[in-house]
């Protein structure tokens, strides 16, 4: 089967649409991870999703839906909780991570849950996405794009210096909570698309490459999307041609882009 024939199959069409939207918009959230130092949030979301999956299996409900719902609730709660505790979101994410994993293991132990089955929530598969998944990815992508376009100047101020954002009278807290919430959702959806262990491929690595060569926030967002799109589509294509996992192909291509950016900066920037 060649790639043209593969386009006739709904699973491949779904993968293509998902990669197209997600690889353009999800790396925009990677810019926030880097600039606001939110890397621990990704680990927290993985464990929160695992707890949701465990509860789903315990209650005989769809573990994926519960996993995503738990991620949405956790990401909504993280900002205000960190504010109350006077700790950074990264630190509170560590607390969430440990607590949710502990509760999940209690459920595994007392609920006779097959651990591998619960962990399956963390393995995404881009070739098994449903139409509902595509709708979720589409809505999330449009939301991310909307936030970046509508609040660009406020985001720029906040990423540059949060204290300046407060001092000049911007609703900094609202924006920060909004970003943490959408980032939590992005990580949760990425887990479904590409798997928890490879979320970085979609969200973080393109932004990392862009941060090496960008001289303004506009460039940073632009190159993040471009690198995401290039690695997403070419990763899907290459994985199909030489029969390797799509996620791995995407990560290898993004890593090559990051390497090229580093060389480019040394030589020309």
């Amino acid at each position: 089967m060649n790639i043209i024939q593969a386009l006739d199959f709904p699973f491949f069409q779904h993968a293509l649409v998902a990669i197209f939207f997600a690889s353009i918009t999800f790396p925009l959230m990677g810019v926030f991870i880097i600039s606001l130092n939110l890397i621990p949030l990704r680990f927290a979301m993985m464990h929160v999703a695992l707890l949701g999956g465990a509860i789903g299996l315990f209650l005989k409900l769809d573990p994926m839906i519960l996993g995503l719902t738990f991620c949405a609730i956790a990401s909504m709660a993280l900002g205000p909780i960190s504010e109350r505790m006077k700790l950074g979101v990264g630190t509170v994410s560590g607390y969430f991570m440990a607590l949710t994993l502990a509760i999940a293991f209690v459920l595994f132990s007392k609920g006779n849950i097959h651990v591998i089955e619960a962990f399956s929530i963390l393995w995404g598969n881009i070739l098994s996405l449903s139409k509902t998944d595509l709708i979720i990815i589409g809505v999330l992508s449009l939301s991310i794009l909307g936030i970046v376009l509508l609040f660009f100047k406020e985001i720029q101020t906040m990423l540059y210096d949060r204290e300046i954002a407060i001092n000049i009278g911007l609703p900094e807290k609202f924006l920060y909570y909004l970003i943490v919430f959408v980032l939590g959702l992005t990580i949760a959806v990425s887990m479904r698309v590409i798997g928890a262990l490879l979320v970085d491929a979609f969200v973080l690595l393109p932004a990392l490459g862009a941060s090496i060569i960008s001289k303004s926030l506009r460039q940073l967002f632009f190159f993040s999307s471009i690198f995401g799109l290039v690695s997403g589509l070419s990763g899907l294509y290459i994985s199909f041609i030489i029969d390797i996992p799509t996620s791995s192909a995407i990560i290898i291509i993004t890593s090559l882009i990051i390497g090229s950016c580093t060389i480019l900066r040394r030589r020309f920037i």
Binding site: L159, D161, I168, S216, Q219
Partner: peptide, 28 residues
């Protein structure tokens, strides 16, 4: 002074002072 290496030009860092008065959803 801000010590992070966030990519921003001087003119962008200066016009931020207007952002509070400009309000949300409007550009300078």
């Amino acid at each position: 002074s801000n010590s992070n290496r966030f990519p921003i030009r001087v003119e962008e860092a200066v016009i931020m002072g207007r952002y509070g008065k400009i309000g949300l959803l409007r550009n300078p």
